[in-house]
């Protein structure tokens, strides 16, 4: 079924697919051509990844004329977040995340 959590985890278990989601997070509503631009992957490979991301409901498409626009849908990830992270851990996790980010940034500066 479309809401299957397994599909979300499987779709996320691939760096190329996460890169495509990152692209949409930065700029939503991209066409297939725009998603393929400056990507090492072939158009066919990107299309295959998008089919999986759509099946997991992580990407939603809208037809506009002859083009199909791709939108990031973070709702399934949020459901996972609400299940296993919840409200109490959030502050501590955010603090850890911030620490990790600042350490990473320091790394880049050196």
């Amino acid at each position: 079924m479309v809401t299957d959590e397994d599909k979300v985890f499987k779709a996320l278990a691939d760096a190329s697919r996460r890169q495509l989601l990152d692209k949409l997070r930065k700029k939503n509503g991209l066409t297939l051509g725009e998603l393929c631009a400056d990507h090492a992957m072939s158009r066919q490979a990107v299309t295959k990844h998008l089919v999986l991301l759509e099946a997991a409901n992580l990407v939603v498409t809208v037809k506009q004329g002859r083009e199909k626009l791709h939108y990031l849908n973070p709702v399934p990830i949020n459901e996972i977040y609400m299940c296993w992270i919840g409200q109490f851990e959030q502050k501590r996790l955010q603090a850890l995340h911030n620490l990790k980010q600042s350490l990473k940034e320091n790394d880049h500066e050196q």
Binding site: N73, P74, V75
Partner: peptide, 11 residues
Amino acid sequence: MSNDYIYTTYI
């Protein structure tokens, strides 16, 4: 049509 965000859920 211009939509900057689209969210979908199945219920």
